[in-house]
Design a protein around this nucleic acid. Structure first.
Lengths: 151, 151
DNA sequence: GACAAGTATATTGTGTGCAATTTATTTTAT
DNA sequence: ATAAAATAAATTGCACACAATATACTTGTC
């Protein structure tokens, strides 16, 4: 999506210029961030999406696919195979709720719980690489959260 | 990556909380934006990545895969199959440079050039959906560009 | 209590992203 | 002039994202 910064109005033509787009930098920044996480998370044998799921479970062990999806804005088409991979690595167990046989309940294994210790290093390493001031980070976070809440 | 907003310092433990992460909202916002583009771009029979490539070509017809990749921060592993799909839709021709047989040169077809007309509607539709003020958009754009430039 | 409607996952299929490798061509060094 | 290094794309393989659909279970409704 495009914006005008200098002039009062841009033509539809000008809005199409890549340099006037807002969504493109957002998309590029997200790609760049995930790419930057990769070498850090390789040491934990996790992808970024898997790392997010593990963070959710470290905070809230034993929750359902639906709840993980609600927290991460991801659906079962993404989560089901991802969770099977985490199970394959021995980090989670994919059980069923006793009250409701439909819901799959994710429980951290001992190894899954233990992995948190190494993961604690990651945020500081990323902060170091990103090189934004605290106020910039806060602004960015709020704007992104606003977009997610709106869309 | 995590930040602290209220307290002077957060523990490594607290940095792991999803609500303290900055990269997660960025990632979610990018996903949300691409998801929001989808119904708009469906009318043009383009994905978001394909739309970005078309924008590059509308600005700079006849450039190479490498130059498109430099502009969009994407590599040949992403672009080669994408460009084949654009060729399949009759929007581009995948030629070769005469000076250097290694470089593939992308030329818009008449249909590819013509598609720009419909695409001109898209930025305004997205702006409408995103619901951010101009200054917020500018701030977000600059912060994302800073991240991309740093990483 | 059957049966329709709703809900939670799973599956399928398409299109990215990207690391790693390969292939083809060009440039450089000797 | 030729072998080595460099460069541009293409290929391969893996893991997302997500729309669309299917499957299995649960909850109303009558």
């Amino acid at each position: 999506m495009a914006l005008c910064e200098q002039k009062t109005q841009l033509s539809a033509e000008e809005h199409m210029l890549l340099d006037h787009q807002v969504c493109f930098p957002l998309y590029s920044a997200s790609n760049a961030v995930v790419r930057t996480y990769r070498p850090l998370l390789d040491k934990l044998d996790l992808t970024y999406a898997q790392y997010l799921v593990m963070m959710v479970l470290w905070e809230n062990d034993g929750i359902s696919v639906k709840d993980i999806g609600a927290r991460l804005h991801l659906d079962s088409g993404t989560l089901t195979p991802l969770l099977k991979r985490l199970e394959g690595k021995g980090l989670v167990e994919r059980g069923r709720s006793e009250q409701d046989e439909r819901v799959r309940v994710l429980k951290l294994t001992e190894e899954g719980t233990g992995l948190k210790k190494e993961a604690l290093q990651v945020p500081a390493q990323m902060k170091c690489k990103i090189q934004l001031d605290l106020d910039e980070l806060i602004t960015l976070k709020k704007l992104c959260e606003k977009i997610v809440a709106t869309l």
